[in-house]
């Protein structure tokens, strides 16, 4: 499937709520120590409207705040430059509301349900992050929350592609976010109640805009990558083969799954690899979105070949997913370039 026509789905913006990362290129150059500093969403959003919102929601809002400006979807006055109905939201998070749920269950057991604040009610449902993003920014298109395990971030990219291709929205804001509450950390690090083993988790969010080529051209917004192939299959080999197709472009860089080594799929021996989790920590549901953001920086700087983003594929994972990102095909009136990244 090619994406050099109106049917293509392109990445037209990136945003981050992650220390040390102001733009996608920083994912390749920032010293890993800076990623470890906590990110404070209130510094970007102001604290007043963050009450009763959990950590994941605050991080997600901060990343979306940035991506809407990067993709020129938000005017200086704060309003959208496009109809709210034309823009959907796809969030990926595995641990997002785990702490809110555990805290409420604990309070109820010790002090009865009268002791919990009704303001916590939205936090019990796992779509809470996407809800607040839609409300704060007026995004009224289809909204999805993927809580789909290790591949969740790449799956979110797939669903953004599908919503655009099905004509439900012109673009979707895709968000990968994970917080590090106590319960989330314990759940991710251990399969029982042993103390935290020290595994470092991402505490941050990344956002991008996946937009139809037609809408991007109409708005005159440059694109940094095209979403060119997807698959979720039993193992990494199958997923990669399916996503690349029989005559896909050569892979310039392979973004490997987090969580330890996996067998190298056919055709990828000797290819340059990168494990983003060694720098930013275990990303869980945010990984795939972060990988795609990193891919935009690679492609917009003219890196050779395509970027292959992969997740899952270990024995303990239910599946593996692969997404192929390519440089958007140039055309006469539509010149993709790094300006969306350089302009900030």
């Amino acid at each position: 499937m090619t994406y050099d026509d109106d049917d293509g789905v392109l990445v037209t913006g990136t945003g981050f709520a992650l220390s040390g990362v102001d733009r996608a290129a920083d994912l390749w150059t920032c010293p890993s120590a800076r990623f470890k500093e906590p990110f404070e969403p209130a510094d970007r959003l102001g604290g007043r409207r963050l009450r009763y919102k959990d950590r994941a929601t605050r991080l997600g809002l901060a990343a979306v705040h940035q991506v809407l400006r990067d993709a020129r979807l938000q005017a200086d006055g704060g309003g959208l430059t496009v109809p709210g109905e034309s823009t959907g939201v796809v969030v990926s998070s595995n641990l997002g509301n785990v702490d809110a749920v555990c805290a409420a269950a604990e309070t109820i057991a010790s002090d009865t349900a009268a002791a919990v604040s009704p303001m916590e009610l939205p936090n019990t449902a796992s779509n809470v992050i996407a809800s607040w993003i839609a409300i704060r920014f007026g995004l009224r298109g289809a909204s999805l929350t993927l809580c789909n395990g290790p591949t969740s971030g790449l799956d979110a990219l797939f669903w953004a592609w599908a919503l655009v291709r099905a004509g439900r929205v012109e673009r979707a804001v895709v968000v990968g976010v994970e917080p590090t509450g106590t319960a989330a950390r314990l759940l991710a690090a251990a399969h029982d109640r042993r103390p935290d083993d020290g595994a470092r988790l991402l505490d941050g969010a990344v956002a991008l805009v996946a937009e139809s080529a037609r809408a991007a051209r109409r708005r005159g917004i440059p694109a940094t990558a095209a979403l060119s192939g997807f698959a979720r299959r039993a193992d990494l080999h199958e997923a990669v083969a399916r996503a690349r197709g029989p005559d896909g472009p050569p892979v310039g860089v392979w973004l490997v799954p987090e969580g330890g080594s996996v067998p190298t799929p056919e055709g990828l021996h000797g290819v340059h690899t990168r494990d983003l989790s060694t720098d930013v920590g275990h990303c869980s549901g945010a990984l795939g979105v972060l990988q795609c953001a990193a891919a935009t920086a690679y492609l917009s700087r003219g890196g050779p070949g395509c970027v292959l983003a992969t997740a899952g594929g270990h024995d303990d994972d239910d599946a593996a997913a692969a997404v192929v990102l390519t440089a958007p095909a140039p055309s006469d009136d539509f010149v993709p370039g790094p300006s969306a990244l350089e302009g900030r």
Partner: peptide
């Protein structure tokens, strides 16, 4: 049903 959602609905 989770206890957190049942309890928070009870509250609401």
């Amino acid at each position: 049903i989770t206890e957190s959602s049942y309890g928070l609905l009870d509250r609401a």
